[in-house]
C-alpha cells in the first residue's frame, strides 16, 4: 500500500463492527467502571474521555486484549474477542504510555524491527518515517531523541502494516501543534480506509463525527450500598 490511498479506499474487511457489552473493570481491589457498552463501526472514531482515574487507560487495555474484563464481553463482528486473542491482536495497533524506544537502536532500525513483525515492507517504513517527519532523524539512536520525537516514533509504528483498529492512549501528549495535525491526518486516512480508532484523551482530539464516551459515566455500585443490601457481613 504505497502512496496516499485517499482516492482509492481499500476496505480491510467488508463492514466490521466492534462492540462492548456491559464491561466491568477491577483494578486491584477497586472497581473502576461497570456496565459500559459501545458500538463502533468501520470508519468510526471513539473518543474516551473522563478525569484521571476514571479508567480510560484500563478500558483501552481491555480493548487491546491486554486486560481481561471482570464482567461483560467484547465482540468483533459478533465473535467474542477473548476466544481468539491472536486474531484480535493481528488486527489492532496499540499505543500505550510507554514509547518502547530502545536507547541503542536508531529510529529506522526500530521501525524496521516492528515492520518485520507486522509483515510490512521497507516502503511502508519510509512512508511512516515521512508521515511523522522522522525522515531526517532516521539514523539517530533512541537515546538522543526528545520526548516528542519518541512519541512520534511510537505513532509511526502504529501505521505499519494493515490494521482494522487503532487504540491510542493520550497520543497528543508531548506533541507540538504540527505533529498533532500530522497525527489527525493519519487517523483520518485510516478511517477513510474503513479503519476504526479508539483514542483516550483528556484534552480532545480533532476528528469528524467522533463518538464520545465519557468513561466516568459508568460508575460501579458503591460498595457500602451493596454490603448493606447483602447483609452477609
Amino acid at each position: 500500500m504505497t502512496g496516499p490511498s485517499f482516492h482509492r479506499p481499500v476496505p480491510l474487511r467488508p463492514m466490521p463492527v466492534f462492540e462492548a457489552h456491559d464491561l466491568g473493570c477491577l483494578r486491584g481491589e477497586r472497581a473502576v467502571f461497570a456496565g459500559l457498552s459501545f458500538r463502533l463501526q468501520a470508519g468510526g472514531l471513539l473518543l474516551l474521555t473522563g478525569p484521571n482515574g476514571a479508567g480510560k487507560s484500563s478500558l483501552l487495555r481491555m480493548l487491546a486484549g491486554l486486560l481481561r474484563p471482570a464482567a461483560g464481553g467484547l465482540t468483533w463482528d459478533g465473535a467474542e474477542v477473548w476466544d481468539d486473542l491472536g486474531a484480535h491482536h493481528e488486527r489492532l495497533r496499540y499505543l500505550g504510555h510507554g514509547e518502547a524506544v530502545k536507547p541503542p537502536l536508531t529510529v529506522a532500525e526500530d521501525l524496521r524491527f516492528w515492520a518485520s513483525l507486522r509483515g510490512a515492507g521497507p516502503a511502508e517504513v519510509d512512508r511512516a518515517l515521512e508521515r511523522f517527519a522522522l525522515s531526517g532523524l532516521a539514523g539517530r539512536p533512541g537515546r538522543l531523541l526528545s520526548a516528542g520525537q519518541k512519541r512520534r516514533l511510537a505513532l509511526a509504528r502504529v501505521t505499519l502494516g494493515p490494521a482494522a483498529l487503532w487504540l491510542l492512549d493520550e497520543p497528543t501528549v508531548g506533541l507540538d501543534a504540527a505533529s498533532v495535525e500530522r497525527l489527525a491526518a493519519a487517523v483520518a486516512e485510516h478511517r477513510a480506509r474503513r479503519g476504526m480508532a479508539a483514542i483516550a484523551t483528556h484534552i480532545g482530539f480533532p476528528g469528524e463525527d467522533a463518538q464520545v464516551l465519557a468513561v466516568d459515566d459508568f460508575p460501579p455500585i458503591p460498595v457500602e450500598a451493596e454490603a448493606l443490601e447483602e447483609g452477609a457481613w
Binding site: A64, G65, L66, G86, H89, E90, L92, Y94, G96, H97, G98, E99, A100, V101, K102, W114, L117, R118, G119, R157
Partner: peptide, 18 residues
C-alpha cells in the same frame, strides 16, 4: 525488565507470534 518498563512487552504481547 527493560522491555517491561518501556512498554515493549505490551507491544510484544500483541505481536503476531505467541
Amino acid at each position: 525488565l527493560a522491555d517491561y518498563e518501556d512498554g515493549t512487552l505490551e507491544l510484544l504481547a500483541q505481536a503476531p507470534l505467541p
